[in-house]
Each structure stands twice: as C-alpha cells, then as structure tokens.
Amino acid sequence: SADYSSLTVVQLKDLLTKRNLSVGGLKNELVQRLIKDDEESKGE
C-alpha cells in the first residue's frame, strides 16, 4: 500500500477530500482511514 505516513496532514486531507472521506482526527487516524479505504476498494 502507499506510504501515507510520509505525507503531510495537508496532503492526507486532500486525498481524503477527493475520496469523500472524513478529514477529522489526528494524522494517524487519517492514515488509517486511507489504508482502510484502499483495502475496501480492492475488495470490489
């Protein structure tokens, strides 16, 4: 998976916004949300 932890919070929020995901929470939560979304989209 992508190394989201190396991105800035601003970059993470931009990715979340593009996916229509919540941008609330700490950086670690944003990273986990993106990883979870990646895993769910692979399952389709």
Rank of each mutant, 00 (worst) to 15 (best):
S6Y: 08
L12Y: 00
G43S: 12
Q11K: 06
L12R: 00
S6N: 11
L34T: 01
K36L: 09
L21H: 03
E29V: 06
S6C: 08
V31Q: 04
A2T: 14
V9I: 14
K36E: 11
T8L: 05
N28F: 13
T8Y: 02
S5W: 15
V23L: 09
L15Q: 05
N20T: 05
N20S: 07
N28S: 12
S6G: 09
N28C: 10
V23P: 08
E40G: 09
K13H: 07
S41I: 10
S22D: 10
N20G: 15
V23D: 07
T17H: 12
T17P: 01
E40M: 13
L12I: 05
D38E: 05
S6P: 04
G24P: 03
D38C: 05
R19E: 02
V10S: 15
E39I: 12
E39M: 13
K13T: 07
R33E: 03
Q32K: 08
K42S: 11
E39D: 08
Y4M: 01
S6D: 09
K36T: 09
A2Q: 13
K27A: 05
N28W: 15
K42H: 11
E40H: 11
L21I: 04
I35V: 10
D3N: 11
L7M: 14
Q32P: 01
D38H: 04
D38A: 04
T17E: 10
G43T: 12
I35C: 07
K36Y: 08
E39N: 10
L12C: 01
E29F: 03
D14P: 01
L34V: 02
K13Y: 06
Q32F: 07
E44G: 13
L16S: 02
V23K: 07
N20Y: 06
S41P: 08
T8G: 05
T17A: 15
E40P: 06
G43F: 12
Q32A: 13
L34M: 02
V23R: 07
D37E: 04
I35D: 04
V31S: 03
L30S: 00
S1Q: 13
S5F: 14
L26I: 09
S1Y: 14
L12H: 00
S1E: 11
L15E: 09
Y4G: 00
L26W: 07
V31W: 03
D37K: 05
T8M: 04
K27G: 03
L15Y: 05
V23T: 15
E40R: 14
V9H: 06
R19F: 03
K18P: 01
N20P: 01
V23I: 12
S41H: 14
N28I: 10
L7V: 01
L34A: 01
G25M: 01
N20L: 06
E40F: 09
E40N: 12
K36C: 09
R33H: 03
S22Y: 09
V9G: 03
L15I: 09
L30V: 01
K42F: 10
L12G: 00
G43L: 14
S41G: 10
Q32M: 11
L26G: 15
S22E: 09
D14S: 10
L7H: 04
V31K: 03
D3T: 09
N28P: 10
V23Y: 06
S41N: 14
E39R: 10
A2K: 13
L26D: 15
G24F: 14
D38F: 04
Y4D: 00
S6M: 11
T17I: 12
D37M: 05
N20V: 04
L15G: 00
K36P: 00
L12W: 00
L15D: 03
T17N: 10
Q32W: 08
L21S: 01
L16G: 00
L30K: 01
L34R: 00
V31R: 04
V23H: 07
I35W: 06
D37W: 13
K13D: 02
N28V: 10
S5I: 08
D38T: 04
K36S: 08
V31L: 06
E40D: 12
T8A: 05
R19S: 02
R33I: 05
Q11P: 00
A2E: 11
K42Y: 10
G25L: 02
K36Q: 12
E40T: 11
G24H: 15
K42L: 11
K27L: 07
S1V: 13
V9M: 12
D37L: 04
K42P: 07
L16W: 00
L12V: 02
D37V: 03
D14Y: 14
L12E: 00
E39H: 09
K42M: 11
D3C: 14
D37Y: 14
E40Y: 09
L16N: 01
L30W: 06
L16D: 01
G24D: 15
L34Q: 00
T8W: 02
K27H: 08
V9T: 08
K27T: 05
L12Q: 00
